[in-house]
Design a protein around this nucleic acid. Structure first.
Lengths: 279, 279
DNA sequence: GTCGATCGATACCGCGGGGGTATGAATGAG
DNA sequence: CTCATTCATACCCCCGCGGTATCGATCGAC
């Protein structure tokens, strides 16, 4: 099966509309229809149920959509990592969530830079949930993730640090004088609705809280008295006096870890992991 | 990048010889040379160093070989799983090492078959180390693996059972009267050299022991007094009186587990895992 | 019921590019 | 120096991908 065919199929399967899919692919609709037909003929079974009014996935089509996406990501990864190796020489791209684990990341980078044959580390910051995609399609080589928020399925991992979580409140809020809180306490926070994070497709769920993209933005909104945030304890390190943190004793613990695609156990990534595990 | 280009490159990178690679691909040598050149031009950097006498991988080429293999496996997996879904309907292929964990596997299959919406489970037996390949290229959907022998990199896993190991000896061997042994004891077994398992490429390492492909074959060789074997305790269940097992108190424990590609969390695989975890 | 809009399928054409054969050029063995 | 080996180049053919024009089926409006 050729990459082109897969891209065509995935486009149609996602749009469920030949015209729109063709537009997205930058080709005309007839060759797209033909390509899908040819693919179905070669696989020996229909992938889509078409009427003139609607297109739907068959069972087999649904499998090909899932598997095809990961296959396309793998092909993209091969191309991207090759290009990077060729042009910028050896080097790793590390991806982390903007504003998270600042301190740990700083230490890690410093410790790795001191290694005998350290290579350049390009740090890429992104929104929550985007890291897995970057690791999968080759835009990044290693990621700083947080369990249980990020999925580590399909990656090799090394746990670095586990910690509890705290509630971050505007200074002066009634709850900010408490020494500890429970999850049940924040259920009842009508004045401070919890923020809404974007889903994988970039859309925001409905709800009363403000929309946020990263931790820096969130911190600002907390300081402005617009929301409260549940974050790992380590976020306390760069608190100003406009935000107060109170320990949440029954919040699930958060583990910070390194994750990387299992086949790309390059020398550089291995060194990085070894240094991180030691610290 | 197209699948065809990747296949061509991987063939050349593995053979390090354009002529042989072309033969393997079933095309003539000139188009292959041209295809690789075109690929290098598009990626903007050489992948191979050629002289008229030798071909070698560049740094970038080495990356593309590794990443390209996994990408090709992913594409093959997409095609195979789609074909299977289309032709044999829903169903899973479970792969296990021949002769290993018989009892657990039997129980698992029976328990799953009793589930309300169980689908057909096709059991595929193979040699050690082959399972990962089958899972990666889509010939299997879920595997019964053994840590630390099998690598679980890149798979989701569910541990089922952990046990110690024993030394399996021909009945009547001097050591067979002992109640327990240590690893150091088998270093000194000149009369019974340990067997040699095939490497990933199917070749056998050098050494004095007999070559074996699976556990059944190994058991027979032990019974014949040709070798001794270190195997998980559960291999005792179908011992005849021609083989004796003695516990190895300091052997690393073996964990039997289910592994599956993270994206193929189909209903059937999920059920199978749930049933297995319960038992 | 008729008409029109929508949308996928078909027919047909042109051309780029992938594959073939023949041959050249470079290099190392003897 | 000669020859064998091996990758690159030259040239040709034709398959197949993509384009435009059009058809045919289906559904909604009235």
């Amino acid at each position: 099966m050729e990459t082109r065919e897969l891209r065509y199929f995935v486009a149609v399967a996602e749009e469920l509309h030949f015209g729109r899919a063709a537009e997205r692919l930058g080709i005309a609709q007839p060759p797209l229809s033909r390509a899908i037909r040819a693919l179905e003929r070669r696989l020996g079974s229909p992938l889509l149920e078409r009427t003139t009014r609607a297109v739907a996935l068959t069972e087999a089509g649904s499998v090909l959509l899932t598997e095809g996406r990961t296959a396309l990501d793998a092909v993209d990864a091969a191309e991207r990592r090759t290009r990077r190796t060729a042009h910028t020489g050896p080097g790793v791209v590390l991806v982390a969530k903007a504003g998270a684990s600042q301190e740990l990341l700083t230490k890690l980078l410093a410790a790795y830079a001191a290694e005998p044959d350290a290579v350049a580390v390009d740090v890429e910051l992104c929104g929550p949930g985007e890291q897995e995609r970057l690791l999968r399609d080759g835009r990044a080589d290693v990621g700083l993730l947080h369990r249980p928020f990020d999925s580590t399925a399909g990656f090799d991992t090394e746990d670095l640090h586990t910690e509890g979580q705290s509630l971050f409140l505007p200074a002066g809020h009634p709850l900010s004088t408490r020494t500890e809180l429970r999850m049940a306490d924040i259920e009842a926070l009508p004045d401070l609705p919890l923020p809404r994070w974007p889903a994988a497709d970039g859309t925001y769920p409905d709800g009363p809280g403000p929309q946020v993209r990263d931790t820096a933005q969130l911190r600002q909104l907390v300081a402005l008295g617009r929301t409260a945030a549940v974050l790992p304890d380590s976020a306390r390190v760069d608190l100003h006096d406009d935000v107060t943190a109170v320990a949440l004793v029954d919040a699930p613990p958060v583990t910070t870890l390194l994750a990387w695609p299992p086949q790309s156990r390059s020398r550089a990534v291995a060194d990085l992991v070894r240094v991180a595990a030691r610290a």
